[in-house]
């Protein structure tokens, strides 16, 4: 279990993470979700003691990670898969990591096999493709058979097979009792992997909880209504408002939230409005994510917002 409590990190004037609290529970996959610059990596670095928190605490299984007598068995981490000297072979890299904790050489063989890296393990890391580097990073994270896994953007650079493999791997590890914390800026990826999500925006907690609840809360379902040209909008919008819904105009159509299409149909019949279109719209996960973080995107593209 990872318990983050009031975690704050400032770099000079810039606040990277502010008063962040969440729990990643044992046996579950917790997704740290947010746009670039939201503080996901900084949070992971503070959990691992690589960056000192300005204030607050992060505990792994009840104690600060840096106090663990065998850190590799407590937490396996992959922050930046490219953080390997390009002149080493994969085997040399893993052997050196295993030696720190007196892990047997056959454990290195196991993780190489598990990640499909046995064959290229004698090659230098500098010659690896992005996907191979990522697999090596995951192999290194698994080396100590850790109780907790912390993976920063683990599916970056992997092909669809690889993405599926990572997903199955973390699901099976969580099922076996591992605490898994992984980050992504893709809501759709999280939806297929994570049990719980912690949504960050500009270093602050935006939402947290079981993924279905967070998505449901962020996606008020809406209905698109277009009236025949001769039919005025006013009677229907008044009726919708009276019934507790809200309307907004988009082009020649209305978007109604708070009521379902059947209720709107009844209202239209009662007010004599002629419907040309009545379409229920289910918001996608990406919409939910955008909805949650729209006020906290650090770098927005210039011009019109979509």
């Amino acid at each position: 279990m990872i318990e983050v409590e009031g975690l704050t990190k400032t770099y000079g004037e810039k606040v990277a993470v502010q008063d962040l609290s969440f729990v990643a529970r044992t046996g579950r996959v917790t997704g740290l979700l947010g746009p670039n610059g939201a503080g996901k990596s900084t949070t992971m670095r503070m959990i691992l003691g690589l960056h000192r928190a300005t204030s607050g605490s992060a505990l792994v299984d009840g104690r600060a990670f840096v106090d663990s007598p065998a850190p590799m068995t407590a937490v396996g981490a992959m922050l930046d898969a490219h953080a390997v000297h390009p002149g080493r072979t994969a085997r040399n890299y893993l052997d050196a990591l295993a030696a720190t904790h007196h892990l047997p050489a056959r454990r290195v063989d196991e993780v190489l096999e598990l990640t499909g890296m046995t064959e290229p393990s004698r090659r230098r890391v500098g010659t690896f493709s992005l996907g191979m580097v990522q697999r090596l990073g995951i192999a290194a994270a698994l080396l100590g058979s850790p109780h907790t896994l912390v993976l920063d953007e683990p599916v970056n650079g992997l092909d669809p097979d690889g993405v599926h493999w990572v997903r199955e791997l973390v699901r099976s590890l969580a099922a076996a009792g591992t605490t898994v914390l992984l980050s992504s800026h893709l809501m759709s990826e999280m939806a297929q992997t994570a049990d719980d999500v912690v949504v960050l925006g500009r270093g602050r907690l935006v939402a947290a909880g079981a993924i279905a609840d967070v998505v449901a809360a962020a996606t008020a379902s809406s209905v698109r209504v277009r009236l025949a040209t001769e039919s005025p909008a006013e009677p229907l919008t008044a009726a919708v408002t009276a019934a507790g819904g809200t309307t907004s105009a988009t082009g020649d159509a209305l978007v109604v939230t708070g009521l379902d299409s059947e209720q709107i149909g009844h209202l239209a019949a009662r007010t004599g409005s002629v419907l040309a279109e009545l379409t229920p719209q289910s918001a996608s996960l990406e919409d939910a994510f955008f909805e949650l973080t729209k006020d906290s995107i650090e770098y927005t593209t210039g011009g019109t917002t979509s």
Binding site: M72, T73, A96, T100, H101, R107, S145
Partner: peptide, 23 residues
């Protein structure tokens, strides 16, 4: 297959020295 790395795994100076030698 998983080799049990639990009870024997520990971090100490000897292990770090061996690791640095391998590096």
């Amino acid at each position: 297959t998983t080799t049990d790395t639990g009870p024997t795994a520990r971090l100490d100076l000897t292990g770090l020295l061996r690791s640095e030698l391998i590096k």
